[in-house]
Computed example of a mutant assay.
Amino acid sequence: MTDRRTVPGLREDAGHATAEDGVVILDGPNGVAVTMTADAAALTAERLHAASLLAREQMAAAKPGSEGSPRA
């Protein structure tokens, strides 16, 4: 598993999404900005949610003493 302390640019602040003139604008950290159709934004949201659930499971499994984590 990747050590979170060594991931360059890892952010803990969330992006901000708005709807304007029928499109979704996602403003993220470091000046990242993406404009998407409503359908593309919805699919992106679903994929981000699924990935966040998996990442949380991975973090829980990596904690010492949890099932599936390597023992020291």
Rank of each mutant, 00 (worst) to 15 (best):
43 L>A: 12
47 R>Q: 08
66 S>N: 14
52 S>T: 10
22 G>W: 05
58 Q>T: 08
52 S>L: 08
67 E>P: 05
52 S>D: 09
5 R>Q: 14
13 D>V: 14
47 R>T: 00
64 P>E: 05
52 S>C: 10
20 E>T: 12
42 A>H: 04
30 N>L: 14
16 H>C: 11
19 A>Y: 14
47 R>F: 00
53 L>R: 05
26 L>G: 00
50 A>F: 02
58 Q>V: 09
55 A>D: 05
54 L>F: 09
53 L>V: 09
36 M>T: 07
58 Q>G: 09
49 H>N: 07
15 G>L: 02
50 A>G: 01
25 I>E: 10
40 A>K: 11
12 E>R: 13
29 P>C: 09
21 D>Y: 13
11 R>N: 06
30 N>T: 14
8 P>D: 02
58 Q>R: 15
4 R>D: 12
68 G>I: 03
60 A>T: 00
49 H>R: 14
8 P>T: 00
31 G>T: 08
63 K>H: 13
21 D>N: 15
70 P>W: 01
13 D>A: 11
44 T>C: 10
38 A>L: 14
5 R>C: 12
9 G>Y: 01
71 R>Y: 07
2 T>G: 07
20 E>H: 13
8 P>K: 00
52 S>A: 13
39 D>I: 08
23 V>F: 09
14 A>I: 07
33 A>K: 14
52 S>R: 07
63 K>I: 09
23 V>I: 08
45 A>Q: 05
51 A>M: 12
60 A>Y: 02
32 V>P: 15
60 A>G: 01
63 K>G: 10
14 A>C: 11
47 R>N: 04
19 A>P: 06
32 V>M: 13
3 D>I: 05
7 V>Y: 00
24 V>E: 06
35 T>W: 08
